[in-house]
């Protein structure tokens, strides 16, 4: 009876958040393994415009609930609508992003549906023996991985760690169905009130959205030393990260802290400079795709999770790296210019 994979798309301020495409990529793999359909739900106002790209990024069906009251995330309201929709569609699997929105709405809906929910999964797969969902997640500060099943209850629900997978490229030829859902007005009334949103400009750094993070630790010695991290980061379009010690020393603000008591990131490339790789720091970055470490201590823990390590003095290595990357960039730029000139000729 319960069939298909459903992902809960995420919108912020009327814009579809790209984490939705990551969910679609996850959902597509599972739906294909099950030979079932992939649907995507969007709650919001004025969201229909995004349906086409949602289909081109993997969905077979898009459900849109469009209502002015859904403009901002209100937990009770969203829960009521999503619970109703899920009961109608009866998907076998429901996924949402492990963002502040997803981590709030999913436990609410799961409890309403009286079913299980697995938090912050980094791996999802289908057990082909019984077609059930295998949900793997880190816990206890990244010290443990647990694989969890929901054997009986349906749907099987999971939140998925952002940046733990890549979106599918747009497939212009892909077709799908768009279904506009409407419900009677009393479903949309709630006692909650959204008073406003204040953008945090220090979050512009948004280390969690960056493809590359350059992080520094106590080995940078001083605030001036830490500037090298910022120089390298801006050169390669990266966000700046830091250990707790670097933050405590006042070299950089707390929003940049990576680790157990800071942010969790999973970029394509993480460059760790002058930091030892404490368990608490690793908890926030060890799922990065590629990790580079620079440290003078060849036994530093950070090398255990690295793909590429350089043992040596960072005060020599980092300036050399910056210099060589700069030269490369300039070389590329001038090459580009030259070819542009040739094009014109």
């Amino acid at each position: 009876m319960y069939k298909g994979v459903m992902v809960i798309g995420e919108q912020r301020g009327g814009k579809l958040h790209p984490v939705t495409y990551e969910l679609l990529a996850r959902g597509r793999v599972l739906a294909d393994k099950l030979s079932e359909e992939l649907s995507c739900v969007i709650l919001g106002y004025g969201m229909e415009q995004f349906a086409e790209e949602i289909i081109q990024r993997g969905a077979d069906i898009v459900y849109i609930v469009d209502n002015p009251t859904l403009k901002n995330f209100l937990p009770l309201l969203y829960t009521r609508v999503l619970t109703k929709l899920t009961q109608e569609v009866k998907p076998g699997i429901v996924l949402a992003a492990a963002t502040t929105q997803g981590r709030t709405i999913m436990p609410l809906v799961a409890a309403k549906l009286d079913t299980g929910l697995t938090a912050d999964c980094t791996e999802l797969d289908i057990d082909l023996k019984d077609k059930s969902l295998l949900q793997t997640r880190p816990a206890i500060g990244g010290n443990v991985m647990a694989t969890i099943k929901t054997p009986v209850s349906r749907p099987q629900m999971a939140t998925v760690r952002p940046k733990s997978t890549k979106p599918l490229p747009v497939n212009k030829g892909k077709e799908g169905k768009v279904i506009l859902k409407d419900y009677e007005t009393n479903l949309f009334s709630t006692c909650e009130e959204f008073l406003g949103f204040i953008k945090d400009t220090t979050q512009d750094v948004n280390v969690q959205d960056a493809d590359i993070v350059v992080s520094g630790g106590k080995g940078l010695k001083t605030r001036d030393g830490f500037c090298m991290i910022e120089d390298l980061a801006s050169l390669i379009n990266a966000a700046v990260g830091a250990t707790r010690d670097a933050v405590d020393l006042g070299w950089i603000e707390y929003p940049h802290q990576i680790g157990l008591s800071g942010k969790t990131v999973s970029p394509k490339l993480y460059i760790a400079i002058g930091l030892s790789g404490s368990v608490q720091h690793l908890a926030g970055m060890q799922t990065s795709e590629t990790i580079v470490a620079i440290n003078k201590d060849k036994d530093a823990q950070i090398f255990k999770v690295a793909d590429y390590g350089i043992v040596g003095d960072l005060f020599e290595i980092v300036p050399e790296l910056i210099e060589k990357l700069k030269n490369k960039k300039e070389g590329k730029d001038s090459l580009q210019k030259r070819s542009e000139i040739y094009d014109k000729v």
Binding site: V144, K149, T150, D307, V311
Partner: peptide, 28 residues
């Protein structure tokens, strides 16, 4: 409704390529 079916230690170690910094600049 959920069951933990497996608990394991995350695979921490990757196949790290290590270089010692020296004056040749090869590491970078």
């Amino acid at each position: 409704p959920t069951r933990v079916v497996k608990i394991f230690k995350p695979k921490l170690s990757r196949d790290v390529i290590m270089h010692q910094q020296d004056s040749s600049g090869a590491a970078v």
